[in-house]
Amino acid sequence: MNAAHPDDLALAQQIGAGDEAAAATFFTNHGGELFGFARKMLSDVNAAEDVLQEAMLGVLRSIKKYDGRVSLRAWSFAILRHKVVDQIRKQSRDLLVSTADPELENYDNSGSWNANQSIEPWDKQAELLDIVRYCLEQLPHNQREALHLRAIEGMPALEVAEVLEMSYSNLRQTLHRGRQSVRRCTDQHMGADS
């Protein structure tokens, strides 16, 4: 099988052969985004640091299994994600996963907006970024991690689906539900008196 990411495969083989400088370069290039993901998922800087350390060791221990099918970056995110989920379970916290569609109540039987539905333009542009970031933090875990990887890290959707071990169509639905939730939350805060 041809590797989809031959450069990454070559780098992984270099690291696997014991090239510490290559490993250090890879982690220096991607440590920030890996740490950012851990922080967003765990909301605890010390736990995020521990998980990053465990994930880096996990990447090195598994590096010889890397086959170049997805990018080395996405593959590392997948290892980190497992560590994050382990950490959440260790803290006896529930992994809040949602597939619900709370938007359904907005429509009548024909699929048109309900007669009393009001959707106003947002005018507090200066506050939008902070409000959206707050709303992202309120999302169920599955929507938060999908939106973080796809929107904030800009990872290709197919790679995000690989990292999250879900089908492509399920990912698209999860992303959409997440954006709907962020929109609804943002709308509520945009309407609130400041």
Partner: peptide
């Protein structure tokens, strides 16, 4: 609204390493 969410969530946040 969706466009604005899409635009804002696409803005990378400053990276901070430990």
């Amino acid at each position: 609204h969706f466009r604005q969410i899409y635009h804002v969530t696409g803005k990378p946040e400053p990276e901070q390493l430990p």
